[in-house]
Design a protein around this nucleic acid. Structure first.
Lengths: 135, 135
DNA sequence: TGTACTGTAATTTATTTTATTACAGATGAA
DNA sequence: TTCATCTGTAATAAAATAAATTACAGTACA
């Protein structure tokens, strides 16, 4: 996996800290220290999950799509995760081998279980709780 | 993350299925369908964790380092994982921003908790149990 | 109508992963 | 002893993925 989760959490934390104003991608990018286009791209994704709202045009910017206490870290994880926490091999196991023939199925089942347990764990913390840790 | 876990599980499953003979890296690579050097490299890692034993020279090859029922999937995960399941951002957050200054600490704590819960989960399944799923 | 934003596509650069080549060293058998 | 067959590992190349950058159309406000 990459740094998408961290970036997403950074964005959402900033927004939760300043709920009364719209933050621009340039401002957010300045805090994270990455390119503003990446911020807009990630926000575009988070918005599709209802976690962020945006306003275009002059004085436009971003705000949370719902209250921070209604967003769990599992919501964020699901929004950014594009593969299992166990990773994903890209080989094609040999179908002539009894193990090779079946292993992907068994590994996928395992991956599903693990991912479910992660989501379970993360669903217990809200963005509000995470954000309150900051002094 | 990459496909290391899957590769490691494939290797270990093969070894657990044929506990009475040494398997060569070429044979193992043939079942996984990857390059034999990658197999040897991954085994070199797993061996450093005591999960596999090897014998050099003619008629050499690999076998489990301990009985399959004494190896848990958490052992495998710990051996191959080189970063958190939540990923790792490589930006340097702006220290002049209150959020930027603290976020890495908070995210790392979270990552630790999640990783611990994965290990917890995986420690409940042994390689023997995983391997027994294959008909 | 100008200014300051977002939205997104296209491209480049950097990084990581996987594959390959090469060869020294170990072991067993003819 | 010498050959064949393995492991162990380094070095390199190729492929895939992630991040950064450039560019610009569209929107909204003053």
């Amino acid at each position: 996996m990459n740094g998408q989760f961290q970036i997403a959490m950074h964005i959402l934390t900033l927004l939760s800290k300043q709920p009364d104003e719209l933050l621009s991608s340039a401002y957010i990018a300045g805090s994270i220290n990455i390119n503003p286009v990446l911020v807009r791209k990630e926000i575009s994704n988070l918005r599709s999950f209802g976690l962020i709202e945006s306003k275009e045009g002059k004085d436009g910017g971003y705000s949370l799509g719902k209250p921070a206490h209604q967003i769990t870290l599992a919501d964020v994880y699901v929004a950014v995760k594009n593969q299992s926490a166990l990773g994903q091999a890209k080989n094609m196991p040999n179908p002539a081998c009894p193990v090779g023939k079946q292993i992907n199925g068994h590994l996928n089942n395992l991956a599903l279980e693990v991912d479910t347990s992660i989501i379970n764990k993360l669903s217990k913390t809200t963005l509000a709780a995470f954000s309150d840790q900051f002094e």
